[in-house]
Simulated assay, not measured.
Amino acid sequence: MARLCGYANGGGGLVHAEAAFLRRAASRFLIADPPESRNGIANWLNDQGHRTALGGLWRGETLARTLSNPRMAGLDSDGEPIEGFGETVLTPDEFLRLLRIFTDGATAAAAPRVAYEYLATQGIADCGSCGYDMSGARVNADAGPGYRCLPPTQTRKSCGKVRMNADRLESALAEEVLADILRPGVHEKLLRLQLDAAKEVVRLRAHVEGAEERFATLKSMRKSMLPQAYKAAEAATRDDLKACQARIRFLEQITSVPIADVHEIVAWWMSAPRASQRALVHLAVTKVHVLPSGGGRGHDPHGRIRIEWRTGLS
């Protein structure tokens, strides 16, 4: 059975660092009116670097379940004090107040929001400090969409220090991309890149259409191959097909952007689907570096981004 966060073992004995942040989390439920959302407080804990007893990220449900455990207040399952339990994370009064909050649904999840479709994810934007890709995320359940460099882990050497609101980053990026396209000479280069993408789509479609024949040829050789070699060749052929199909979908977005008439691009952008806007950004830039807010860059979103334009542009 997993250790209860805040305690060294089932019989008590505080882990003081964990008890401290659990008390702060409980106070955010108890003091605010109406109480903060479960997910909002869980995200706050994660942002502060606090983790569950198993080392995982906090979720609203996990936090509520932890604070609803009667041992948080040194009580048994019947609500009676456990003899000799020692110091507790919560007082019995705090525990009962939290139970009422959770039971009454005062912190129930808000109505589902329409999912936000980010413009500069999928490898477009990275952290200007550590180079890791930026992720679309909200600081808490009530915050607007934003970009963040994820906190570091054992396998991810990101810095977790750079954030930027989505409306600021995306507006600045769109302005710079559209302005660059309107500069003399750039439009023609984009048209050539789009033509190259269209040619690649034709080549990849032919490659996909030949997949059935490649699988049939491979199957005919099965008896002459070692089982492990056949499985590896079959997996590689299947992975190649999936990669080609994904590449075609991406390139088709680029080829569908109506950039033949440069003067219509701005009007098109205002009503274009997000996938098509992202395709135009992919066509124009290789990477958008999101810089920290220091150095006087905080108030001007253009000062927070540095764009690497595709070869031959800008």
Rank of each mutant, 00 (worst) to 15 (best):
A2K: 09
L4Q: 10
C5L: 15
Y7V: 01
N9C: 11
G11H: 11
A17C: 03
A19F: 02
A20W: 03
R28K: 13
D33I: 09
P34V: 04
P34D: 08
P35Q: 11
E36P: 00
R38I: 00
N39G: 07
I41P: 03
N43I: 00
N46C: 11
D47F: 01
G49I: 10
G56V: 04
W58R: 11
R59Y: 12
R59N: 04
R59L: 10
A64P: 04
P70W: 06
P70L: 07
R71N: 02
A73R: 01
G79Y: 04
P81I: 08
I82W: 01
E83A: 09
G84I: 06
G86K: 04
V89H: 03
L90A: 09
T91N: 03
T91K: 06
T91H: 03
F95C: 00
F95Q: 06
L99W: 00
R100H: 12
A106N: 01
A108C: 06
A109Q: 12
P112I: 09
R113E: 12
Y116S: 04
G123D: 02
I124A: 01
D126H: 10
G128V: 05
C130A: 08
M134F: 02
G136E: 07
G144F: 05
P145W: 05
G146Y: 04
R148C: 12
S158F: 05
C159L: 07
G160C: 11
M164L: 14
A166N: 07
A166F: 07
D167S: 08
E170T: 12
S171K: 15
A179S: 15
L182V: 08
V186D: 01
V186N: 15
H187W: 11
K189I: 13
L191K: 05
L195F: 10
A197F: 01
A197L: 00
A197C: 06
A198P: 01
E200W: 03
V202F: 05
R203D: 14
A206H: 13
V208Y: 01
E212K: 13
R214Q: 11
A216H: 07
A216C: 04
A216M: 05
T217E: 15
M221L: 15
R222V: 03
K223R: 14
L226M: 10
L226R: 15
A229L: 13
A229N: 11
K231G: 15
A233N: 09
E234F: 12
A236K: 09
R238P: 00
D239G: 06
D240F: 03
A243V: 03
R247Y: 06
I248D: 08
F250E: 14
F250H: 14
F250I: 10
E252D: 14
Q253Y: 07
Q253T: 14
V257M: 02
P258V: 06
P258N: 05
P258F: 04
A260S: 12
D261F: 02
H263G: 11
I265K: 04
S271R: 12
S271I: 11
A275T: 13
R278C: 04
R278L: 00
R278M: 06
L280D: 06
V281Q: 07
L283A: 08
L283P: 03
L283T: 06
P292E: 05
G303D: 14
G303E: 13
R306M: 09
W309S: 01
R310W: 02
T311M: 03
S314P: 01
